[in-house]
Amino acid sequence: MSDDDWSVIRGGVLFPEMIPGTFSPKANLENNYLIDRGEQRQSAYTGIKSIPVQDYAATQDVGGFQSPTGPKSV
């Protein structure tokens, strides 16, 4: 692989940085996904560096399951 390929891999955009010794990303719900408000204002819509972490932020902790038919009457 080229140096450019390695810089993409190590840059944290396609593969998020992980907490050492775990399979958990450093950017997570507890630290507000490390949103960079300056970056958000300047160029990145979400302000989140990693594409997979952007997906986690959009889908993680969305609440409980809701039935598409609504609550059942008893």
Rank of each mutant, 00 (worst) to 15 (best):
M1N: 14
S2R: 10
D3W: 01
D3E: 12
D3S: 08
D4E: 12
D5C: 11
W6F: 10
S7W: 01
V8L: 15
I9N: 07
I9Y: 04
I9P: 03
G11E: 04
G12Q: 00
G12P: 00
G12R: 02
G12E: 01
G12L: 03
V13C: 03
F15C: 10
P16L: 02
P16I: 02
E17F: 14
E17L: 12
M18Y: 06
I19M: 06
I19V: 12
I19H: 01
I19T: 05
P20D: 14
P20C: 09
G21S: 05
T22W: 09
T22F: 06
T22D: 04
T22Q: 08
F23Y: 13
F23G: 13
K26T: 07
L29G: 05
L29E: 13
E30F: 08
N31Q: 11
Y33D: 02
L34P: 00
L34T: 03
I35Q: 03
D36V: 02
D36C: 03
D36W: 00
R37E: 14
E39V: 14
E39W: 15
Q40W: 05
Q40V: 04
Q40K: 15
R41N: 11
Q42W: 13
Q42T: 09
A44P: 01
A44L: 14
A44W: 02
A44K: 12
Y45M: 07
Y45E: 06
T46P: 01
T46V: 02
I48M: 00
K49H: 06
S50I: 02
S50R: 00
S50K: 00
S50V: 02
I51W: 04
I51E: 01
P52F: 03
P52R: 04
V53S: 00
Q54V: 03
Q54I: 04
D55K: 02
Y56H: 11
A57T: 03
A57Y: 06
A58H: 03
A58T: 03
A58L: 08
Q60K: 05
D61N: 15
D61A: 15
V62H: 07
V62S: 07
V62E: 09
V62M: 10
V62G: 09
V62I: 09
F65Q: 10
F65N: 08
S67Q: 07
S67V: 03
T69V: 08
G70V: 04
G70I: 08
G70F: 10
G70T: 07
P71H: 06
K72Y: 15
K72G: 10
K72F: 15
S73L: 13
S73Y: 06
S73M: 09
S73T: 13
V74Q: 13
